[in-house]
Amino acid sequence: LVVSDDDVWRDQFYNGNIKKGRGAIVLRLAKSWFHIGSLEILTYSGELDLLRRLLDFIIQEYFPSIALHDSNRCLEFFSTVMSETANFISLWISVGFAHGVCNTDNFYLLSMAIDYGPIGFMDSYDTSEYFVPNTSNDERRYKIGNQASAGLFNLSKLLQALKPLLDPRQKQLFTELFKTKLGLLGENDNYLIAFLLKVSLLC
């Protein structure tokens, strides 16, 4: 944390109560800054060659257990990120932590939280699950009761980002991964998976 000698005006809680305080710069260090959005934006813009090269770089640098020459490396990558993300969210919920901005630019591929922003811990157990540390989140989109759903939604965006790199057989394997994670046993669960992902943030 580097603090300046100059004062700045801030409305800390966005309620019109402006106060003067010293300016500061927070320096954050992390093993990696690649997040789901890093891949999502390349798919959205149609830069599929760059998407493939970036994914291979990420796998080579941060996922040594996945072989680059493996034709199923995308599947293994997604499966690993999905499992580690689910585990990480479970851990933070277990201690009453809530992430205030659970979008794809704040969900990192290495399953870590490094953003300095609206985060917080519940002071006491709230059975309503309405606790949210983001004071500008009036709709409570990222309330603590929605953290897991937000994670599932973001993983669905990662799946969409990776799909252009897959052949038809691998796309079916993607579906099987989601069925396993959701505990679905039917043969025609694609619609149900799509429905669950679509409504996951509306609860």
Rank of each mutant, 00 (worst) to 15 (best):
S200H: 03
Y142E: 06
D105S: 08
D5A: 13
V101A: 12
D167Q: 15
R10T: 07
A67K: 05
H99C: 05
A148V: 13
L192I: 15
L91G: 06
R28H: 03
N137M: 13
L166C: 08
L197R: 00
G96I: 02
L27W: 04
I144V: 01
G23D: 11
F77S: 10
K163W: 14
I119F: 09
M82R: 13
R141G: 10
A86V: 06
C203M: 02
Q147R: 02
L91T: 11
E40Q: 05
E187Q: 08
D138Y: 12
Y130D: 14
G21T: 00
V199W: 01
F174Q: 08
L201Y: 08
L184N: 08
P164F: 06
I93F: 04
D123R: 11
G96M: 00
F97G: 10
S32W: 07
T135E: 07
V26E: 10
D189A: 11
E187H: 06
N137C: 15
R28T: 04
D167M: 14
S90P: 00
Y125N: 08
W92A: 01
L202Q: 10
L152S: 06
G183W: 05
L27C: 07
R53L: 05
K157E: 08
I41Q: 03
S4V: 01
S156K: 09
G186Q: 12
L50D: 03
R73E: 00
K20V: 06
W9K: 08
E40F: 03
G100M: 05
D56T: 07
L165S: 11
E139D: 14
K31Q: 10
G117Q: 05
E40G: 02
G186Y: 09
I144C: 05
N103V: 15
T104M: 01
L110C: 03
G46H: 10
A148Q: 09
L152W: 12
Q160I: 06
N72M: 06
V199N: 02
G16E: 07
G145Q: 13
L165G: 10
A161K: 00
L177E: 13
F195S: 08
Q147E: 10
I119A: 10
F174K: 06
F195P: 01
D105W: 10
L182T: 06
D5Q: 14
G186K: 11
S200F: 03
P164D: 04
S136V: 15
L27A: 07
D7T: 13
K163G: 00
I93L: 09
G23S: 14
I114K: 01
